[in-house]
Design a binder for these strands. Structure first.
Lengths: 140, 140
DNA sequence: GTAATTGCAAATAATTTGCTGGGTG
DNA sequence: CACCCAGCAAATTATTTGCAATTAC
């Protein structure tokens, strides 16, 4: 069943898309589109933000990157495709991986309770990173 | 520790804010700001969308409503303050509660693994609601 | 060659904000 | 009567889209 209702379009390669994928894979910082733009620009000064967004969507649809959306504001992207969770600092916005945690979530139970066919789930933690924690303790 | 770094402002009551809270409490549909706007308008034709947003933020800060943010697009609001999870249909966008599920999530474990002080977590399921499931099966 | 892709700029969409006047405590 | 709040419209922010030129296969 094709959930997107979309006819697959044959992708060509492009230097821009390759670069964007490279940039994402070369960092662990869960970058935003804008961060990726600035970084890609260093190698390819004429690249445009529209191209960044278009390719991020293509790469996400292809399953080559993950799009992370936290409550507020902007999308972040992750080149690590393994299923894992994230923590986001409510002060500085930094996002880090939650390592080695086993999903304790039962999609099957949710399917039974709701009648929905569950496709995926997202588990996000929000809190204070060690740095902000220390900084805030000093203020108080 | 005041995480907002904000001086509390003394709230006055307002007919508009009361109405908005009423609207949210009178539905189980996890409405968007726009839906609330249309509904509130029936009782108070001159109310403006800006007022809706300002009051939704105030009510959220007061803890009288929950703001739900799913991956894509718009915020939804929930008058049910009890900790619970949600499922969202990836086809029609409908959001329903996941009833009676016990959180199997250990914030403490995440704190130990990351050094973050965990404040809250959000667990969202995405999938297909029974109606969309049936409709899509007929298409295929 | 033909169809996908680009850069650029303009368009969207959701939400926030500035202002001026009205309502609440 | 101080100051919070409303309505309105304009501003902001992140993202998407239209278009003509370019590039990949």
């Amino acid at each position: 069943m094709n959930l997107n209702h979309q006819v697959e379009k044959k992708l060509k390669t492009s230097r821009q898309r390759n670069l964007i994928l490279c940039v994402i894979r070369s960092t662990h910082c869960h970058p935003t589109a804008d961060w990726i733009f600035e970084r890609a620009r260093k190698d390819m000064p004429n690249i445009s933000l529209g191209t960044i967004y278009r390719n991020l969507n293509l790469l996400r649809d292809e399953g080559k990157i993950q799009e992370l959306r936290f409550g507020n504001s902007v999308s972040r992207y992750d080149g690590d495709l393994r299923s894992h969770y994230h923590v986001r600092c409510m002060e500085c916005g930094e996002v880090v991986d939650v390592p080695h945690i086993v999903p304790l979530v039962s999609s099957q139970q949710v399917e039974e309770l709701t009648g929905y066919r569950i496709h995926k789930h997202r588990l996000e933690f929000t809190g204070l990173c060690p740095d902000c924690l220390k900084r805030l303790d000093n203020i108080e």
